[in-house]
Design a protein around this nucleic acid. Sequence first.
DNA 1: GAATAAATTGTTTTT
DNA 2: CAATTTATTC
Length: 761
Amino acid sequence: MQTPAVASALLSGLNAQQREAVLAADGPVLILAGAGSGKTRVITRRIAHLVLERGVPSEAILAVTFTNKAAAEMKARTEALLDGQALYAWISTFHSLCVRLLRREHAAAGLPRDFVIYDQADQLSVVRAALRALDLSEKLHPPQRVLSRISAAKNARGRRSPAPDAGDESLADALHGRLAARYQEFLTAAQALDFDDLLLHTVALLSSQATVRESYQRRFQYLLVDEYQDTNRTQYELVRLLSGARANITVVGDEDQSIYSWRGADIQNILDFEADYPGARVLRLEENYRSTQPILDAASGVVAHNTRRKGKTLVAVQQSGDRVLLHEAADEFHEAAFVVAEIRARRGQGRAAILYRMNSQSRVFEEELLRAGIAYLVVGGVGFYERKEVKDVLAYLRVVQNPEDPVAVRRVLNVPARGIGARTEEELERLAAQRGASFWEAMNAAVDEALLPARAALPLQRFRDLVRGLQEDAVRLGLRDLLSRVMERSGYSAALAQDDGHEAQDRLANLAELLSAAADYELREPEPSVAGFLDRVALLSDADQVRDDARVVLMTLHSAKGLEFDSVHLVGVEEGLLPHARSLLSEQGLEEERRLCYVGMTRAMRKLTLTWVRTRQVFGQRRLAEPSRFLTEVPERCAQRTSSERRGAALAGQARSGWGGREMFQDRGTGRTSPTAATPRMSQSTLPAPLRPSWAPPTPAAASTDGTLDLRPGVRVRHALFGVGTVVRREGAGDETKVTVSFPGVGMKRLVARFAGLEPA
DNA sequence: GAATAAATTGTTTTT
DNA sequence: CAATTTATTC
């Protein structure tokens, strides 16, 4: 029913295996897609094929990925194939799919309409509260461990994966049971769902409510799941429930890239697919388009040492290429110097990545890059939305939306300092427990019934008035304006503005950036809302920060999955680091580390370098390091070895000599840029520029600044953070214009007009 | 109650 | 080593 032209366009440039995958008939399909085998290409073309040639309405298609970035890319690439036809398919992450579903069906799911999502930091405060309630010490029960046990228990009920440490004493189990119960009570009281709950509630909804289940099964006739090897048990069930008896399900995955078992991912899901979905077709994509043969040989050589795998043979399309460079450095500083020198030498030859096992390894590389005047982007670590000031202001937003959220309330109760101390807080917690009321209710009672001395009650009352006032504002203001109001009325920005230290300035800049992000969201989203913004922020992942225009990117091996770079530098390839010491306890742990190494190596398109050091500073002490066992698994025929005495030293010298320049540096985590004149120290300094996560297309440059704004001295202007002020002085012209503005109650501020976002007042 | 100084303590990976 | 928690002073 379609023209042959379209059909051939969809299949052009595909190999036989890929075509088969695109054209596969209805029913369950498992695509074992090796690294770099054109997996996304196959998925997008399959969707387009369903729509264009099989006449499937696009809204009947559901595609699930693990990161927002992957979802955005899949959507964009599919749209490009549809010849202008609108795409109504749901393409999203597991977690946003669940949020979307639960918000629509909150009544059937038995959830409050405005439930909030707790991220890990929030979860940890809940665990601490549970420990306090049961009078247990954090020393004996590290909140982090408690949390992972709770999470494991929540997901483990059922078929596979026996409880993680089954040999535990029943006493400890009982204790954990009580902790888990308390934890869940607190979440319910706060009308909050954690990441696990999002999935679990969706599964519960679909399995208990036949009408709801059937309506979605009817709607989603075709289901595609990416990175199937990383699904956990709950995600597995969700997929099963949605695919129904029809089972038009296509899953794509690679058991060699399963690296999230510690988060509950069950490699068995992909290994058992054929048993779970009888009659499944299994297709293999074994032609690699990304890497050169030596890189592939090296990576395959490593992963071949694993036993639990289906096994496949990847063949590179690009036959020739440089050997893999294996480099030994004296210490981490030499290692960084060597890597940076390499990156510098390959400047102009595409994107480079520095991949490491843990975030703390990034620092030395950042310093070296800074010194060399090379712009870079650090993904993960302390991300933008994890910064204190950002979390604080967002917590205000949460309180305004839902004052029953005690984690948020207690976070901002005394921030900035307003005379509500630990004593008062404890008193309120006790009162809440005693009356079986929420923290917020207890606070109201304390104020209204004068249960506390005036000295404590007065600031509490002022805090309550603040929240109530903001709640009124929330009714009429948009997100950005509300946020701005929060910063202003809470005194948060004023408190920061009074402190003229470096740090406070950076924080102000971050808040300005948060405002930009909010404005950006409002502009882009068809139906912007406070809840929607908070949802999005909570579900943002590190990998979402990766911007395609960053030439040098630093990140963990985990974050690198699904990405590719012209050159990859896998650093710290040492025993205890990769494989990590904590994973050596079990054979499975070791195998996962090996897969991690494999994932890192296969990110490289043309050039791969593995480095390790002889000594490394750990615990603040210099330790001897040992080359990773994985290095011995790299076949010698595709390797070239060097060490820091020779080439590294020479290149390092070169790197040091080439200082300075006028490069733009990208700041950690946020991807914003700031001009730096070769500052030898690490700089957190920033100028506000719109935060633009990679899943959002760039905004047209037009409506950003208004050059028309009159900034002569005496003019009154409004600033998002500082409120209304009077221009005192103006310097420079055009983009360089700087103004000094006097804000009552804040003081004099010198602002770059282009970035300050001033409005006439 | 808040701001500083001192001490302690822990480091995998994260939707 | 750095980041966070705890003691001390104002």
